[in-house]
Amino acid sequence: MSAYIIRRLWQMLPTMLGVVLLVFFIFNWVGGDPAYVLAGKISNQEQIDNIRRQLGVDQPYWVQLGIFLKQIVTADFGASWSTNERVSHILLTRLGPSLTVLVPLTILATLISIGLALAVAYVRGSFTDRMVMIVCTVGLSISILVYIIVFQYVFAYKLGWFPVQGWGDSFIQNLFVYASLPILIGLVVSIAPNLRLYRTFFLDEINQDYVRTARAKGVSENRIMWIHVLRNASIPIITFLMAELPGLLLGSFLIERFFSIPGIGREVILAVERSDFPVIKAITVYVAFATIATNLLADLTYKAVDPRVQLK
């Protein structure tokens, strides 16, 4: 097991290096000389020269790459081009709000989807099943933008049940006042695809021999569904959830933007709008590293929940 982990960690290095190269390619090669971008933001020519010198723009590409690698390792990307805030400070302070919305959202969405999917899978082929599937398909085809616009208008603006937008300093207030409508919207948007997916996981298990055996020896239907089927279907569900985890770091761009939640996702959009390259570079690289790490974690969890899996 430990040999496997060490080998996997070792194998992560080329991928991480590739991510660094790709981000470097996008920003330093495609993006070109930042002087053009900076000229529109900073009037002080001395400051622009300073930033260019720090990035080594006038030096060969391999020196620039070296500077970039050093920035990543030391987590020091300098200051934002727009607000002059330290990039490391931006990342740390924006993480909390994103997680405040997304952790409860993910937990609730998973539990609700599993419950509904089990129920729908149990009555598979029936009218209810078909109706639920149709509602899911239609619901999925409406843009998330529309859900946010309409929910914000109806529940916050018209009915006044929730604040239209905002964010405070107290965690409790944020979670129960400001985050509740974003979480509700997130639930509506994520339950439809999850339900469809989990239903197929359950359907795969329901037709297995062990279900028939359990039924033959007189196990109750409830026990079959909640214990036997759920346990076996949890393997693909956990794999799927692990793949979704990096999204937690990113937040949901749109929800955070509409509700003015100072999270990572909103920061990315702001940074793209302002051409604030250091912030985008830092977020892209670290989120990619987190994704690579969760991929390993997903494989390990997979092994933990399913003893049949052989790790090679």
Partner: peptide
């Protein structure tokens, strides 16, 4: 495969936004 794992490590929307930022 290396190329693939690099591209799929960066969340899709983030990659799109990063490219949109420089173009």
């Amino acid at each position: 495969n290396w190329f693939y794992s690099v591209f799929s490590s960066i969340p899709y929307l983030l990659l799109i936004l990063a490219v949109a930022a420089v173009l």
